[in-house]
Design a binder for these strands. Sequence first.
DNA 1: TAGATTGTTAATCGATTAACAATC
DNA 2: TAGATTGTTAATCGATTAACAATC
Lengths: 216, 216
Amino acid sequence: MKRVKNSGALLRVPPAVVKRLAKYLTIVLEFHADGVDWVSSSGLAKGLGLTSSTVRQDLTYIDFYGVSKKGYEISGLCRVLQSILGADAKWKVVVAGAGNIGSALALHQEFARKGFVIMGLYDSSKRKIGKKMGRLVIQDIADMPDFISKEGVDVGIIAVPSAAAQHVADMMVFAGIKGILNLAVTHLALPQDISVVDFRVMSSLLELTHLIKTRS
Amino acid sequence: MKRVKNSGALLRVPPAVVKRLAKYLTIVLEFHADGVDWVSSSGLAKGLGLTSSTVRQDLTYIDFYGVSKKGYEISGLCRVLQSILGADAKWKVVVAGAGNIGSALALHQEFARKGFVIMGLYDSSKRKIGKKMGRLVIQDIADMPDFISKEGVDVGIIAVPSAAAQHVADMMVFAGIKGILNLAVTHLALPQDISVVDFRVMSSLLELTHLIKTRS
DNA sequence: TAGATTGTTAATCGATTAACAATC
DNA sequence: TAGATTGTTAATCGATTAACAATC
């Protein structure tokens, strides 16, 4: 068992692995909270519905080593996973679209606990602007770009209707946003250096109904 | 160009393809609403950030044929995609967990428009039970299983805290649910014949922050 | 006809799994 | 020590892309 993985490079983590690293982090945080100190690759696998081989292969991409016969030390694993995912930093976030889902995310307690600070909630509807949502007041979306630039907001969550999504994304990018979580069904055409992750409940539901129709 | 694809079997659609079929459906419905009649594989690819080769390969799995030089006839493509995804049927849905996100999904207009009928919204908090959310009244989660069985509910959306998720899922399965959309961070251990799709905003956000940290 | 676009095959690329020496 | 579990390699499996004859 050599002390250097992948010739020490730790460069690009494959997309499929990144998706799972977030799962490892959540389960390992739970173990940590429960006072568990060590976990094996098969323990992680069982908790997440994976194979132990996949787990060990995945952990190959992070700068952390297990111990023969004991497994992985949980607090260290937490720290390294948080670091690689950026979960050890504070992220400034704005939400565009104060409909049911946008408002729910803006109020979502989990975000604050995990270092995502919701700085603003925006909408274009005169009827909504000025309304209080928890500790936030819904702002005019026309004021969003200045706020993003001035505060150095990192992440924009797009929860506006499909037809407005590209325009809102363009506003965010122009104002200097670094990444976008896109809840709208529209595909966003954006510059290469802007990170985008799509998050669509309707797509997931249709994936589910297809599975149901074809069983298993 | 033969008239039969994949020796006419049209059996299993690979998971990666299923995920994209939902995207094809949304964009094709938009085109349809805009009065467009035909779309080429490169037109679809451009709108979704894919290659035309991927699009043609994907459409190989559905029982629908394009026409040389014209592309794909949109209304027919809609119909076949809806059929394979189950979007042409009505689905009975319950939501467990009346927090911000559960309530937002229960009120989400898009669901009703797409054939997903929210039949009930459940919570275990005495403080919430009885409260009105739009046209729904929050019910005691203890009454959920009977309702699922009696009404033949197809899909359960789990939006309860992590610690309760497995228990709620077990209740749903016992009552005869067919599929679960899991918003909780916990991995659900369930029988093989129950379909599960995970849908986690925190995972997507961490995927995004990792991307931001590593640029591109 | 000429040109655009399909469906399909084959090649490439990436992800997962199996196997096992190293090791604590 | 004996046994459990790691990290790594190689084999398998699945997904994407490239190329092109068929065709309208």
